[in-house]
Computed example of a mutant assay.
Amino acid sequence: MINFFSYTCIFIGLIFWFWGTAHLVSDRSVLFKLHGLSVSDTLGSMLMIVGLLLKIPREWPLLLLGFICLAMWNTMLGYVLAYCSTPEDQND
């Protein structure tokens, strides 16, 4: 039963990865595309880490560290991209 949930989380994570990548060919702005890609990649990667945590629970410290780093890195990257995309006079 644990294997089923583990593989399900990993599979749904892969679906999130491909779903975010598929929207890169749309006619939207670059920032909209990057936002969708980063959100879907973050959710997909987190689901894969949860699936791995169910599969190999003895590695929970490393997987938890990866989970936290992934959440922090992608959140900070989103703020940096938003800051860099605003016009010069609004950054002050």
Rank of each mutant, 00 (worst) to 15 (best):
I2N: 04
N3H: 04
N3K: 04
F4P: 01
F5Q: 00
S6Y: 00
Y7C: 02
I10R: 05
I12G: 08
G13A: 10
G13M: 08
L14W: 10
I15D: 00
I15L: 12
I15W: 06
F16P: 06
F18S: 14
F18K: 11
W19D: 02
G20Q: 05
T21R: 08
T21S: 08
A22Y: 13
H23L: 11
L24V: 04
S26W: 06
S26H: 09
S26V: 00
R28Q: 08
L31M: 10
L31F: 04
F32Y: 14
K33E: 09
K33S: 12
H35L: 06
G36Q: 12
L37Y: 07
S38Y: 03
V39P: 02
V39W: 01
S40Y: 02
S40K: 12
D41Q: 10
T42M: 09
L43E: 02
S45K: 06
M46I: 14
M48Q: 12
I49P: 02
K55R: 09
K55C: 00
I56L: 11
I56E: 13
I56Q: 13
I56N: 14
E59H: 13
E59K: 10
W60E: 12
P61S: 02
P61D: 01
P61G: 03
L63V: 05
L63Q: 09
L65V: 12
G66R: 04
I68C: 12
C69R: 05
C69N: 07
L70W: 00
A71C: 00
M72Y: 04
M72S: 01
W73C: 00
W73P: 00
W73N: 01
W73D: 00
W73K: 05
N74C: 05
T75P: 01
Y79G: 03
Y83T: 11
C84L: 15
C84H: 13
S85T: 15
S85F: 13
P87F: 02
P87V: 06
D89H: 15
Q90W: 15
Q90A: 14
D92K: 14
D92W: 06
